[in-house]
Design a protein around this nucleic acid. Structure first.
Lengths: 173, 173
DNA sequence: TATTGTTATACTCTATAACTATA
DNA sequence: TATAGTTATAGAGTATAACAATA
């Protein structure tokens, strides 16, 4: 132990940099594979139980949080996806009667997308089941560990938003 | 503080369950959006700098770790993707001269996929730059926080592998 | 002119299932 | 029969760019 600390004090900067790089990479690979596993599990369950895809579910989740409705451009930013895709997903959901486009009185180029009553009802059911799945998938952590992780992720994310917002459509949450 | 603890002791089980659900959901949403942001950033940089996609890069990364070569089925498991896709990605990389299929002497149905010398060289360059990007993107955490997070993710992941390996092609790492 | 949203297109990744050739 | 890998197909999601309507 002490040996290690002493070594740590005397190694040169380049070595420490390499170690940091390796640690970051390890963290990233673990984070990525864990996320993919959970995402796949949830995606499969959503399809099997509710015949819905993840982006469609996400769009509805955004609308649930904004009962006043969101414009297409808002949805695009929040879902980190370009505009054309939002049109497509919204089209599908509208066909199924789950969301509706409400024309904006002030700006006739724009729409507000809202959940229909049927959409709100359907989403409530799905969201509740979805939430219990997530709880199940994270049952490997206790409450303390979860809040720790939430804090760590927030640090990463705020650092990202501050420095790399240019890359795509961020401004998330 | 004390008030909070007392309250925590006396609230009923259902309430605590709901709180846990919300916390898990919050954790998952934060983890997902953070991962997506980093993934997008890396994907864009890989395309811009090296004209390579993430799956192609990942396949090469797998081979780099296994100089003796990997069979198509192995790659399929490790990349959490079905077999047909591995054929496609391998075809592309083979065309570009980055990997090669080596027929197995013992089992003439099977191949070992390996990096070519050119592939190994190209990957070394990319991997080193990639690693520094990752370090940059995680610079919001210090070494201590990173190792904390690695530990937390390991708990989640091992719990997942133990309970949900059926969902797709896991057995990762 | 700039902005909101749509359309058209093309590309990548993905899963499924039928297929071939070995084992 | 079972297994390793391929092929064919279809579907989802994505970005880009040209476009229409409105501001």
């Amino acid at each position: 132990m002490r040996q290690h600390e002493i070594a740590n004090d005397t190694i040169d900067l380049e070595t420490r940099l390499t170690q940091d790089h390796h640690q970051s990479l390890k963290l990233w690979l673990r984070m990525l594979s864990t996320t993919v596993m959970i995402e796949n599990e949830i995606r499969n369950r959503l399809r099997a139980e509710f015949d819905i895809t993840l982006p469609r579910f996400d769009l509805m989740a955004q609308l649930e949080r904004h009962p006043e409705g969101l414009r297409m451009g808002e949805l695009s930013k929040r879902m980190m996806v370009t505009g054309g895709n939002i049109t497509g997903i919204t089209d599908q959901l509208e066909q199924e009667g789950l969301v509706m486009r409400v024309t904006d009185k002030q700006d006739r180029r724009a729409y507000s997308v809202k959940l229909t009553p049927a959409g709100r009802k359907a989403f409530k059911t799905m969201a509740s089941v979805h939430e219990s799945w997530v709880a199940e998938l994270f049952s490997g952590l206790d409450a303390e560990q979860k809040s720790q992780m939430i804090g760590l992720l927030s640090s990463v994310k705020s650092d990202l938003s501050a420095n790399f917002s240019a890359s795509k459509h961020n401004e998330h949450e």
